[in-house]
Amino acid sequence: MTTDMPARMLRLLSLLQTRREWSGHELADRLGVTGRTVRRDIDRLRELGYPVEATTGHAGGYRLASGTAMPPLLLDDDEAVAITVALRTAAGGLGGIEETALRALAKLEQVLPARLRGQVAALQQATSTITWEGRGPRADPGTLTVLAAACRDHEIVTFDYTTRDGTPASRRTEPHSLVASGGLWYLIAHDTHRDDWRIYHLDRITSPSPTGHRVPPRALPDPGPDPAAYVAAKIATAPVRYHAVATVHAPAETVRARTWALATRIQPLDEGSCTLDCSADTLPRVAQVLATLDADYTLDADPAVVDHLHAAAQRTLRAVRREAAGEAPSGPAAP
């Protein structure tokens, strides 16, 4: 039981920030107090400026809602706008802090007043970021925020999705987890129409929409329960169109740092060499991964992969020879 009132109120506030809605009974159990004490503490939070709303239902409950002003002793308006924009940028793919930024963003936007949300949206629309392929943000922060809240609240979400072959489709899912890997984001979700688990690329998801329908949480199937391990295992065994495995004369850690490949795709052979599975659905993707190696390698690949690499190498060689000979490139003359 939490007898220290300030500590109990901080714990109560933290609970309200981690989930969309709590029943009074659940809060009382978590805090080890009576329902009457919870109601008093809620009133104290409201007096301090925290926008706690009562909800209707079987037993009633509470949620932290958007307020007319930021709660005292936290952030002023300018700080709130600056931090929200920074967190949205970080949540989009800055290495190492995406998940932490996303959790903080979900908490902050939950209590952000409407007038500040407009300022944040205007600033976000007026700014741009130069992103390098394979290194920059690969998911829309707004999409991340919606899906993160759905994972937290076990809420069914619908969205539009572009399949691997480019076909548009609609999906209705129970989001479970978000996983970041090498500049890419993945959503683990249970597809309600197929009654099966799926892994979705977030850069193919558009227009995510919460349905308001919450369901009991599901446990991940094998090889769960770790979401990152689940995604790594599924991606490593997923079918691809073009097979290519390189035996690279470089340490596994060096290859991983250069290619941003999943750990399951790299197998150490000894201290100075490893194998890299660079199979993919497109030929340019295979060539792109091999080009980042900056080391000698041998290749076991489909004939189509070998032909594509040979043609690309010939184009490069012709360009180098023309440059060495001082020849002008073929094509339309410059104006």
Rank of each mutant, 00 (worst) to 15 (best):
D196C: 02
T34I: 02
T89Q: 08
W22L: 12
T100Q: 15
T129I: 13
R172Q: 05
Q119R: 14
D300C: 04
E271D: 15
T68A: 10
L116S: 07
I83L: 15
G95Q: 13
L283D: 14
D302H: 01
H25P: 04
D77H: 06
D43I: 12
H58R: 12
D191V: 02
T237R: 03
R8W: 14
L116W: 06
R30L: 00
V33N: 01
T173A: 14
D203V: 03
G183E: 08
E53V: 04
H310N: 11
L269H: 13
D140Y: 01
A263H: 13
L299G: 02
L283A: 14
A86F: 06
Q288L: 14
P141A: 10
I83W: 08
Y161F: 08
D296C: 07
Y242S: 09
Y200V: 05
P6M: 03
L74N: 01
A148R: 14
A7R: 08
G61L: 02
L269Y: 07
H58V: 13
A325C: 07
L269M: 14
G182P: 02
Q119H: 11
R172G: 03
A139V: 02
A169L: 10
P303V: 10
T68F: 03
A287C: 10
A114E: 13
L178A: 04
V289E: 01
L12V: 07
D41N: 07
M9R: 15
I156N: 05
S330D: 15
A86C: 05
A325T: 08
V289C: 04
R258E: 00
T292S: 09
I97F: 02
